[in-house]
């Protein structure tokens, strides 16, 4: 009797995540309808974001925030990937246990710091540094990209370290016995062996960078401008939502939902491809 109830409750809880995901998609899709019908696919490459007279109509296009999201993510990935690989190699192959352990904890703490802290620190301390080196006015695409990189490095490094650690010692030792250098062992034994996990961690970090809101909101400049230079201020989908969603009405609101839907679908595809193709969770 109690057993049946328990089982049903656990089954219901398990299906809840399915319903929430479907619910998110359905709600976003529903509220995005007006914008979808008005603009169709042109939404993706329309640069204007202009409310009409008296809040009636207007032209809304997602081009600027979409490009801003993609570019800041690309900058972050280009910087973060080699750094994270380096840290993972350091932790698994170079450092002794007494060094690797505290460094590991430090990296994980870096991952635990809330993103709003990165944003605020970046605005007051890192943006001036970027400004003095690259010019511009401090906030902009480049600053957002670099701080985003700092945010995703620990996450990427932790997963890469874990998958590198799964390489059997026998394989490494036989390579060393053949006279291979440490780098050759890393390149020809460890990397091929943990390839899936490494690519998976990169893609997961990519998904995280795409959807990151607060750190970027402080740093990207939040203006509806197409970028010409890398230091130019612009905006991204999450930042536009964070700053303007609550005040929007009618068609503008619907266009915001449209952007949220695009972001949700893209990150859904990215994350599930990482899960299914590369990380393929082993069910014990």
């Amino acid at each position: 009797m109690g057993g049946k109830l328990f089982r049903n409750f656990s089954f219901f809880s398990a299906t809840l995540s399915f319903f929430i995901l479907v619910g998110i998609f359905a709600i976003l899709f529903h509220y995005a309808q007006e914008s979808m019908h008005t603009f169709g696919f042109d939404f993706l490459w329309t640069e204007q974001w202009e409310p009409g007279e008296d809040d009636e109509g207007g032209i809304f296009g997602g081009y600027i925030p979409i490009v801003g999201t993609l570019l800041s993510t690309i900058i972050a990935m280009v910087i973060a990937t080699p750094l994270a690989m380096g840290i993972a190699i350091f932790l698994t192959e170079i450092a002794s246990v007494t060094v690797a352990k505290p460094v590991s904890i430090a990296i994980e703490l870096l991952a635990a710091i809330p993103s709003i802290i990165y944003g605020m620190w970046g605005l007051f301390y890192f943006a001036p540094v970027v400004q003095s080196i690259f010019g511009g006015n401090g906030v902009g695409l480049l600053t957002a990209g670099i701080v985003l990189a700092i945010m995703i490095v620990p996450f990427m490094a932790a997963i890469t370290r874990d998958s590198m650690n799964t390489t059997p010692s026998v394989l490494k030792e036989s390579a060393y016995a053949m006279g291979a250098t440490k780098f050759e062992v890393i390149k020809d034994v460890i990397m091929p062996y943990s390839k899936g996990g490494i690519i998976g961690s990169i893609i997961l970090a990519l998904g995280r960078a795409l959807g990151e809101t607060m750190a970027v909101a402080f740093l990207i400049g939040s203006v509806m401008h197409t970028v010409g230079k890398v230091t130019d201020p612009t905006t991204s989908i999450p930042v536009l939502l964070a700053n303007n969603f609550a005040e929007a009405e009618d068609l503008e609101m619907s266009s915001m939902y449209f952007l949220a839907l695009i972001l949700f679908v893209v990150s859904f595809i990215i994350i599930s491809s990482a899960k299914f193709y590369f990380l393929g969770r082993k069910v014990k």
């Binding site: 997961l204 809101t213 949700f264 990150s267 859904f268 994350i271 069910v283």
Partner: peptide, 26 residues
């Protein structure tokens, strides 16, 4: 179970701002 497990993993990485938008609508 394996479908739900994967969906839950995907949900874990869903952009937090989108969850905000969803709850706003709801």
């Amino acid at each position: 179970a394996s479908i739900i497990r994967n969906l839950s993993d995907v949900m874990m990485s869903a952009p937090s701002i989108v969850i905000g938008v969803f709850v706003y609508a709801l």
